[in-house]
Structure formats: C-alpha cells, structure tokens
Simulated scan of single mutants.
Amino acid sequence: MSPFIYSLLTHDCKPVDGSNIIVTFGYDTTVIVPIKDNNDTACRYEVDHLSEWCDTNNLLLNADQTKELIVDFRRNTDPHPPVHLKGTAVESVNSFKFLGVHISEDLTWTTGCSMLVKKTHQRLFFLRSLRKNHLSSEVITNFYRCTIESILTNCITVWYGNCSVSDRKALQRVVKTAQYIAGAPLPAIKDIYRKRCLKRAGKITKDSTHPAHTLFSLLPSGRRYRSLRTRTTRHLNSFFPTAVTLNAS
C-alpha cells in the first residue's frame, strides 16, 4: 500500500510553470525543465518550490540521492552552475537509472545496453546448468523467457529504436547463445520490438483518452495512418513515428 498512499499524498504536486513537467512514480520524482538561452532560473525556482512543497507535506528530499542530468546538443555550450537543494549542491551526472532504464546525457543507449548484456550473461550460467541436468528444451526456453528475455526487452519500445548497430548485435548475441543452449529457436530482439510497438500502438488507438491518441490519424482512405513529421533521426527512430509506420505497412 505504500506506493499507493504516496501517490495519493503527492497528487497535488504540480509544476509552477506550465512548460515544466513533474513525473512521480512510486517513490521517484523527476523534474523536467526546458532551459532557453542559458537561463535556468525556472529550473532553480522549480526545485526550490518542490523543496518547499515537501516541507509543507512532511516529506523529505534526499539531496545525496538527487541527480541532475543536462541534455544539450549544441556545439558550443556554457557550463551550468550546480543546482542546490537546501544548501547542498546536486551532483551532475552523465547518465542515471530511471525506472530500470539507463538514460544518458546524449540520449544514446550504449550504457543501458551494456548493463543489460552484463546482467543477462550472469543468467546464462543458470541456463547452462539446466542443460547439464538434462532438462527439456521447453523448460529451458521457459526459463529463458522469464529470466533473460524479460531483462533484454524491458521498456524496449523506449530505447531499441535508437540503439546503435553494435548495441543491437551485442543484444542479439545473447539471444543466439541462449538459443544454442536451449536447442530451440528463440525470437529475435528486433521482432519482439516490432511486436511490442504494434501492441502498444493498438492500445493507444483504442483509447480515445490517451494523450497520444491524436498522433494516430487515418488517411482519407481509412486504411493507413498518416506518417508523423520528424526533423531528426532520433525522433524518426523513436516509438511514435515507428509505431505509425509499422501500422501503415
């Protein structure tokens, strides 16, 4: 009940500025603030306001566990002075783990993929132990789906589209190794990604209250969805343009 009660207590925790976003999930709270023309006043004011709100509602912000991540793709960037939380400077990091997904300042997924591969390699030991004990391929496959594939595909619709070729090959090598151990065919990572995208898109198109429902607009023919306009490759390979394209094909 603790996460549920926490959600009830924090339902009125809202950003001061309409352009800012506060995301609360369980005990994690994330503040997203766009910075224009190197003016981070809104960011600092938002952090101060959140700190005051926590004090009013008898909640404690741990400055040691709070991290700052700056995403800036400009060629010439000026260093930002650290954000302070009750007099303590918040540590600025290059990447951090958010709800099980490693997010980097350049929005690449090499760090996250490396951690996934490392974690799944540890699980392959148990897969080999099952084979040494002469368990059936069906049992080994079920074990793989529960303990390895579930890790490899965690939030896959978020990050796989923008993975590098080397990252995708590293992930697929894990599947090939598991397939050799199990002695049975296993679904490729890219096929799981496409399936998850279509499944998620199907839920969004059926839910008219979903914030992204309007992104899936049908063409006059009524058979295909209208492609989304994108300016960058990063946006083109992200979930929504990919899901629209897959539904159109």
Rank of each mutant, 00 (worst) to 15 (best):
K206S: 14
I189S: 04
T209Q: 14
T177L: 03
K199S: 08
T177A: 04
T214E: 11
C197G: 02
R224P: 10
D207P: 02
K199I: 01
L218P: 14
Q172G: 13
C197A: 09
A182E: 03
T214M: 13
R226T: 12
A178K: 05
H210R: 08
Y180P: 02
L228S: 15
D191G: 01
G183P: 03
C197N: 04
I204C: 08
H235N: 09
Q179P: 01
T232W: 05
H235A: 01
T230A: 09
K206I: 09
G202D: 13
L215D: 04
T209W: 04
K190F: 14
Q179T: 04
V174E: 06
R196W: 01
A201K: 00
Y225H: 09
S217K: 12
T233K: 12
T232C: 13
K203W: 03
F216I: 13
A170L: 03
P187I: 12
F216V: 15
K199D: 07
L219V: 13
I192V: 08
K169R: 01
H235Q: 08
C197R: 07
A184E: 10
A212E: 10
R196V: 09
H235P: 10
A184V: 01
P220V: 12
L215C: 14
T209G: 05
K195I: 02
R196T: 05
H210T: 15
T232P: 09
Y180H: 00
